[in-house]
Design a binder for these strands. Structure first.
Lengths: 194, 194
DNA sequence: CGTCTATTTGAATGTACTCAAAAGCGGTGG
DNA sequence: CCACCGCTTTTGAGTACATTCAAATAGACG
């Protein structure tokens, strides 16, 4: 909990009273490896802050192919925001890739919290603003870079994730097949030799 | 201006006093067809609300290819948010595709406005939240749908834009070449006949 | 009518995908 | 301790989707 409040304080200054209110609106929860925080089709009832562990958000298309939308590790948020704000069935699944501790805020409690502690509007504006800017960057990269370039950039930007998730999931995140990523890696290895 | 306040009131309730403050922080501006609101390399100093007209946001990659990130028409916002919040050089260009009227809010004024009218935090949280959710959806679509499916969906979702912008720009938005879009349209036309 | 820009068409090419099979790797039980 | 099982990664051949380049056609505007 302290860690979470510390994280909050990177964005907003809170009084002790406000901290108490915030704490009372949150819920701690643990998930096992493989468990789902959100399942597509369900309405996403809460947004989850990852305290420890590792999650992936993915979309299952009509052909049954999984597309990883994002990974989540310490200090990241996970959930289907679109589903939560519209209270419509989720498009995405959020699954834990290892034992994961989260702090959750439920939709109603969040709305309530915005009233009680208006600074939280600012906090989430800042968080979502960053997420938006990053997603837009990623979109552009998919258009303007080759798969190989995207892979190298990913390894560079998220070394921690690169090491902690299986390769086929990175392929899925990059929007390519696992076979093709293997190909790319092979190619990179050859280049390194010469 | 009334139109803008009406638009604001779809998200937040404002007192007359608050409206006056907001008005005083905004700037009206007109652009001609072809003019740039933001140029990549410059620091984006303001965010622009499109009152009328039409803009495109695009990224110019290392090969000199343009990639359209988004279009903007009435009631949309345009700018390089990433540049504005970090005060670093913009990656994107925002160009007017026709004579365009905008209402602009400059970075400093916006920060000031957040202090003066905290409801604006809520307003922009809601706006950016929507934008984020939409961008994420688009990202997933690019992974899970073929170019043809994306084109048909685009025509369906943004009929107004489909009619008002040249085809090669739609191709750029979809992440394909103008030639290939022409191909796709040809194919669709053939299917319609049979 | 001529010019400029946008769109179409087609052929050759390239990037990434599919499918199938083999190899690697880690854990578990005999 | 090794054999086996399931899961991940690699490899390769054939294929599909999308690009590039070049040239022709169509449209818009003065």
């Amino acid at each position: 909990m302290d860690k979470f409040l510390q994280y909050l304080s990177r964005y907003i200054n809170l009084t002790d009273h406000e901290k108490t209110i915030i704490e009372s609106r949150l819920k701690h929860r643990n998930y096992l490896k493989g468990q789902y925080i959100v399942q597509s089709g369900d309405i996403c009832k809460c947004h989850s802050y990852v305290v420890s562990g590792k999650v992936r958000t993915f979309y299952l298309d009509d052909n049954g192919t999984e597309h990883i939308v994002m990974f989540g590790i310490e200090n990241w948020w996970a959930g289907d925001l679109g589903s939560m704000i519209t209270q419509k069935p989720a498009d995405f699944n959020v699954q834990c890739l290892e034992h994961t501790k989260v702090i959750q805020i439920y939709y109603e409690k969040l709305e309530q919290l915005y009233e009680e502690v208006p600074k939280m509007e600012r906090f989430f504006r800042l968080i979502i603003q960053n997420a938006y800017v990053n997603t837009q960057k990623r979109l552009v990269r998919n258009y303007s870079m080759t798969a190989k370039e995207r892979y190298l950039l990913f390894c560079d930007e998220y070394p921690e994730i690169t090491q902690r998730v299986p390769q086929y999931m990175i392929a899925s995140y990059l929007g390519i097949t696992k076979e093709f990523l293997s190909h790319i890696r092979n190619q990179i290895a050859k280049e390194a030799k010469s």
